[in-house]
Design a protein around this nucleic acid. Sequence first.
RNA 1: GGGAGUUUAGCUCAGCUGGAAGAGCAUCUCGUUUACACCGAGAGGGUCGGGAGUUCGAACCUCUCAACUCCCACCA
Length: 878
Amino acid sequence: MLEKTYEPKKIEEEIYASWEEKGAFKPDMRKDKDAFAIVIPPPNVTGVLHMGHALDDTLQDILIRYNRMQGKNVLWQPGTDHAGIATQMVVERNLASQGITRHDLGREKFIETVWQWKEKSGGTICKQLRRLGASCDWSRARFTMDDGLSRAVRKIFVKMYKDGLIYKAKKLVNWDSKFMTAVSDLEVIQKETVGKMYYYKYPIKGEEGEFIHIATTRPETMFGDTAVAVSKDNEKLKHLIGKECIIPIINKAIPIIADEHADPTKGTGAVKITPAHDFNDFEVGKRHNLPLINILNPDATLNENTPFAGMDTQTARKKTIETLDSLGLMDKIEDHPMVIPYGDRSGVVIEPLMTDQWFVDAPKLAVEAVKAVENGDMEFVPKSYEKTYFEWMRNIQPWCISRQLWWGHQMPIWYGPDETIFCEEDEETAQSAADKHYGKHVELRRESDVLDTWFSSGLWAFSTLGWPDKSEYLDTFYPTSVLVTGFDIIFFWVARMMMMSMYAMKRVPFRKCYIHGLVRDEQGRKMSKSKGNTVDPMEIIEKYGADALRFFMAAMETQGRDINISESRIQGYRNFATKLWNSARFGEMNGCFLSKVFNPNSVKHPVNKWIIAKVRQTANELTQNLNNFRFSDSANGVYQFVWGTFCDWYIEMIKPIFYGSDDALKNETKATFAFILERILLILHPFMPFVTAQLWNNTHDDNSDIITAAWPKIEDVNNTDIKRIDWVIDFVTAIRSLKSEMNIPAGAKLSALLLGANDESLTNINDFREILCSLARLEKIEEYNHTPTPDMVQTVSREMTILIPLKGVVDFKAEKERLQKELDGLIKNLEGYAKKLSNPAFVDKAPAAVVTEERRRQAEALENKAKVELALKRVSNL
RNA sequence: GGGAGUUUAGCUCAGCUGGAAGAGCAUCUCGUUUACACCGAGAGGGUCGGGAGUUCGAACCUCUCAACUCCCACCA
């Protein structure tokens, strides 16, 4: 017996465990089936589940479960990411609380500590994904630093190096002074701030009292200046070109050069050029062969090339200004809105710094990655994201992949005594290559840098399937079917996967890429720990069940939009699960068991025919919607059917059958009910796996599992069956509405007279009139005039007029107002129809069906108008 | 500066190819022996951001104005 209320907590974990135990999430690897695969966007190994994961992984699980039920050979490949900087940061923070730095431990010991941390906290997010119901094949879980995946990384790296696609270069890079590592452009976020613009002057060499005026936001970098640039078109300043000016404080002469970078309309028209600390200046420096002077230490303090060595930039800035002021060289200081780069993880100001780094030739790799989207091998859903992708890919810069961190894939690079580079997959190979090169045994030094964490995630689609080894999984599931992820990592991940996969596999990593938005708080603000507005998915699951959270995510997911979390709505979907649960209880209490001999095409009763047609219609639409990634339409369609059609109408309509005495009909209805409920469980399962599984088990004693039960095929829908009962619903609604508006007690047993009813309609209504709208008696009449009493109310449903005698029950003043309102509405509609239909252009040009429909509506409204007018006249005479 | 998006009921949002404006929540009225109060029945509430255009017909297409959001680049 089912409990009265569905308690998700009691069953979810148990059901999940039983699935995992029997290996229900593993692909069956049958060759005769279509393959369907998704690789999970690997969460940080030490992370915890947030709402973004809940959305992302719910959508994936819906697709996975749906396709599994479609009878495909399905793999959802799970795993986690080592998340270089993020994880190192967490571990360093833990160490700091004990007063230890990573340098105290040394590299080896530190890495060991990170692995320990990973072992300790690494399982959390996978456990949480299980609570969500994610049907990943956990037996295949991978980690980006696994042996196999590490081998993939080294193999690709070496191949790319040897193909000239990875190179070392001394370049200006984004330098994070907290982690003391280079970071890629993507890891830098620009923040609007109101800073200061400092105006001061450099004396012109050899010309007493002559100055060139400079504007800068970073005066402390003046010690790295190697020129001042002026536009050759700058009438006021061009006479200075070719002269030299003196950097004050250090009294160093630098040239004044002509360069188009100096815009006469900006600042003072003269720009100080600091090639080693500014990306634009770097380019200017290259054009003019200017020396590069690095003035910063790796921790962003000034170095010995400045008079303020050891100071941080802020202090040095203050000191510089004070000194310039004391020399009488300051002009002014103004507030200046500007954009300052910060590290996305560290939160410190990013400094452009000259360092030796390793780069991937992204512009070259992008070519094939762009082509694959252009020719449709990979499609974005929604399609508009391909524009974003193209835009970025076509303007892509070399990708800085070296990180001066310890946690990550150490680069497979070895240096010989004379710094000759040996790039091989392992030390042994590198050693023998080196020995051969030098003609003797030499000591090699391994590159200490590790790779950007996205390098290994870029290989995820094939490395997890076994590459570089031969693998049945790789053959079967690559390219994967679809990637589901947020728009925020299109560049970080999707783009890199495309480039890496096109390079390594010559094929796309996935056929489609479904992009969803962010999960925001109730007011639409971004969730963040600092704002304190985060909602923990695990708490929601505890409170309302995983099914409710999942259904919420699906129902809210419309393409291209963010989702605002709404607890009341999640609660509503919990209620939905309970509603379904109780409908099953109703079936159970009335002995509705699945019948093996039941044939939905041979049921006789109109209501049973109707619900069968309706469930087919619902399933058909759902299949379409899921095929098109229309998640909200999918979820809402099922919701509407289960609650609005099955519970609100079908169950109410079959009650009189169950309470009646026609056993044949009873049996047919019981079997139909069981059939419909089973259909509901099937089509709802991808969204609400737990409650549907529980109810499935409750109604099946054959050891079958809903997870592999067959998804309903597309079937023809009998529209006549649908219309017949929809008609009854309209009738019932009209009566109910009338009674409610007239303040007639719901229990009042009324009788009604029907004008214009055909026999079939009458029969259909008679079956339900009592239970659905408390009509005790129905009488068919042919002529309006036959009605003997004038004190009755009237309503219209389709072609019928319904008259209900209400002597002494009804306030006829109210009735008159009601009728007048109805009449006004009809007149307004009629004006619209007349206007349209009298327009020859409409009649000529609109499709025939539209015109016919419009005529039908007009005729109907005209009839109704006559009826209402009559009623009104009658009431007025009272 | 370049690109994308949003503006529809009190709130949060659907509305796929142009063919009588929808949902959930909230509000109001009525209802509890008989699956479910995590319930049922009914109701109110919208010149679909403003303006112009295309069309027989526009929430939907075009132009324009306004407000907001995001991404990329850059600002001495």
